[in-house]
């Protein structure tokens, strides 16, 4: 179960605005799904290691050799707002 307060807390972490209606709905839908998935709580998993990757390989490492970068035009091409050759955002200090 997850209540509206928890939904709001999680939405804040995830930077999602939710309307009052969406919060209610999210609480009920997530509760339903969590009820279902919580069944894995019944399993005895004592001593079972977690799996992050199924493939058991060691990381390949990249040689420290430069590759061409994008031009600044290409980098900024899709930016919603550009100021002084940079990506403009509302100031975090505002």
């Amino acid at each position: 179960m997850i209540d509206s307060d928890q939904v709001l807390h999680v939405a804040r972490l995830a930077r999602l605005e939710l309307s009052e209606m969406e919060v209610q709905r999210m609480a009920s839908e997530l509760s339903q799904v969590l009820d279902h998935v919580a069944r894995i709580g019944e399993l005895d998993l004592e001593g079972v290691p977690p799996t992050t990757h199924v493939t058991e390989v060691d990381s390949p490492l990249r040689p420290d050799e430069p590759r061409p970068s994008l031009s600044s035009e290409a980098a900024l091409a899709s930016a919603p707002a550009v100021v002084a050759e940079g990506f403009a955002v509302p100031s975090p200090q505002a």
């Binding site: 707002a81 550009v82 100021v83 002084a84 940079g86 990506f87 403009a88 955002v89 509302p90 100031s91 975090p92 200090q93 505002a94």
Partner: peptide, 16 residues
Amino acid sequence: HVGSSGRIHGSDSSVV
């Protein structure tokens, strides 16, 4: 921080 810029609604802005 670049201060006020008309480009984004006149509010204070920063550039990355």
